[in-house]
Design a protein around this nucleic acid. Structure first.
Lengths: 126, 126
DNA sequence: GTATACTGTCCGCATACAGTATACAATCGG
DNA sequence: CCGATTGTATACTGTATGCGGACAGTATAC
């Protein structure tokens, strides 16, 4: 069974948290082309939110081209090509902020590098 | 003069964008202990927002221990120690999402690593 | 000392967003 | 065809974002 977890204390909206987690699952190949996502009601009950909150997450994924949404049928993972080059700048900015926070925690350049390498490690090795 | 730029089209609230930029300036040492920040009105007029929006950004920085806010005096940068270890998990999650997005753009492990190294480079070498 | 111009703060309002409840519409399986 | 299951649309509540104006502390000139 698919484990999606939500932190209600977070300032990040629930529907984005859900979308992020599915994005991660697709990115690392845990969900492959054609695979069905849980129904919005199923997952909503599981997570403890309203079905529309899950639906909103699915729509984000659909907009990104990660899943195929069809009214009446279950959402399916799309293995096809995606891109979104314009978001590169956004990622750079986001990374910059992460670096700032790490530095303000007292970490030096080496430690920041190590932190990043560990993150990449965790993502790919599993 | 200090350059703070805001993207009104972004989905990220303006006051957070402002806080992030100051956080970056402090992290890389462009703003040092004791230095004064622009007044909320000055910066607000400069950026094109209401003074309260800037004030909210300053309060975030104050909560993080980066600036000293005193009613009637200008906000000053605090060079002292900060930490916030609990936010490490948040950073890890955020990094994980960045990796997912890069991978979904078709980048492999090496390319993700390179992207990160470039970001670190940009931060420290300047 | 005190008038005055500066500083950040508080309060109320308008609008947009997050999340819910409920009804609707499309698809699937008998 | 019909019921169950799926995603969708609408109406509603609470919260967050951002603005405007009034308030309160601080600094400086006199």
């Amino acid at each position: 069974m698919l484990t999606i977890e939500v932190d209600f204390g977070s300032d990040r909206p629930v529907y984005r948290q859900i979308a992020e987690q599915f994005r991660g699952l697709v990115a690392r190949g845990d969900l492959i082309d054609g695979e069905e996502l849980p129904s919005v009601r199923q997952l909503a009950a599981n997570v403890g939110v309203n079905l529309n909150t899950v639906a909103k997450a699915y729509r984000i994924l659909a907009d990104e081209g990660l899943v195929d949404l069809r009214h009446g049928s279950r959402a399916r993972v799309l293995g096809g090509a995606r891109a979104r080059a314009p978001e590169v700048e956004e990622l750079e900015r986001e990374l910059g902020d992460v670096i700032s926070r790490l530095v303000l925690q007292g970490r030096g350049r080496e430690e920041v590098q190590a932190f990043f390498e560990t993150a990449v490690e965790r993502f790919f090795e599993r």
